[in-house]
């Protein structure tokens, strides 16, 4: 079977973000960009399905400007076989992304689409669920374990839920979104980075896929949250307990 895996290019998780002074968004110029950490977990899972002999081909998909190609190259260096880059400079929201994935799924015919549960920029946590609905497929969100049945009819997914873990059995094809504990993504080795340069990346546009990407949600403005002013450093446990009791009134 074929596995499609989504990879999003986002501001690196360790970089400090700056809100633009005009409030139009977050400044992405001269900031380190990386693959969304949840997408790394998705790539790792896809590649490990291939290594276990369960998947024949892993296709990494990214959508966005020219530079998104770097993110696809990273996925290829981790072990994906080929890439698809949906090239656009327009702002993409989850509904549009899911619609474009749907179009790619119809063409590529994968049995599993693996996506991160959320991207660490917009924190939406939507694309996988929307895609599953659009395809009328089953969904295994926030996965911490993925076990594909030998007959490839079903996949058993353990999900991280608020009060513990939950296990569901999904009919394939399915959309699976990854949570933190699913695996530890590998680092791309230098030989694999070199090899990845030769792997193929197809380019398409939203128009090729027949998708109107006009957002249904307009961003009016972005601002920094009110800074919490630091308090005082106390010298002893006695002083701490005294402040909590008599100043903060929480004891």
């Amino acid at each position: 079977m074929r596995v499609l895996v989504g990879v999003k290019r986002v501001i690196d998780y360790a970089a400090k973000i700056r809100v633009k002074p005009d409030g139009s968004g977050v400044d992405k110029a001269n900031v380190k960009m990386s693959m969304n950490p949840f997408c790394e977990i998705a790539v790792e899972e896809a590649v490990s399905l291939k290594e276990k002999g369960l998947a024949k081909e892993v296709v990494a998909v990214s959508m966005g400007p020219q530079a998104s190609q770097d993110t696809i190259r990273t996925a290829l260096a981790m072990g994906a076989d080929r890439g698809i880059h949906v090239v656009t400079d327009k702002e993409l929201q989850p509904l549009a992304v899911a619609n474009m994935f749907k179009s790619l799924v119809e063409k590529e015919d994968p049995k599993i689409v693996l996506l991160g549960k959320q991207a660490i920029d917009d924190d939406c946590n939507q694309t996988g669920q929307i895609l599953a609905a659009k395809l009328n497929w089953s969904q295994g969100t926030f996965a911490s374990s993925v076990v594909v049945g030998d007959d490839q009819e079903k996949v058993v997914v353990t999900r991280e839920v608020d009060d513990g873990l939950e296990t569901v059995s999904l009919k394939l094809p399915a959309v699976i979104t990854t949570d933190l504990r699913l695996n530890e993504p590998r680092y791309a080795t230098l030989p694999n980075i070199m090899k990845a340069k030769k792997k193929k990346i197809d380019k398409v546009t939203p128009e090729d896929l027949g998708v109107d990407v006009t957002p249904q949600i307009e961003v009016l403005h972005v601002k920094e949250p009110e800074a919490r002013s630091g308090g005082v450093v106390v010298e002893s446990v006695d002083e701490l307990v005294d402040k909590l009791k008599n100043e903060a009134g929480v004891l």
């Binding site: 929307i130 969904q139 969100t141 839920v161």
Partner: peptide, 22 residues
């Protein structure tokens, strides 16, 4: 919650509208 996050975007997709989460 994980219940709502799992459910709401799927419902929104069936209605073909963009969800607003969190």
């Amino acid at each position: 919650s994980t219940f709502g996050k799992n459910l709401a975007p799927r419902l929104a997709a069936l209605l073909d509208c963009a969800p607003v989460t969190d």
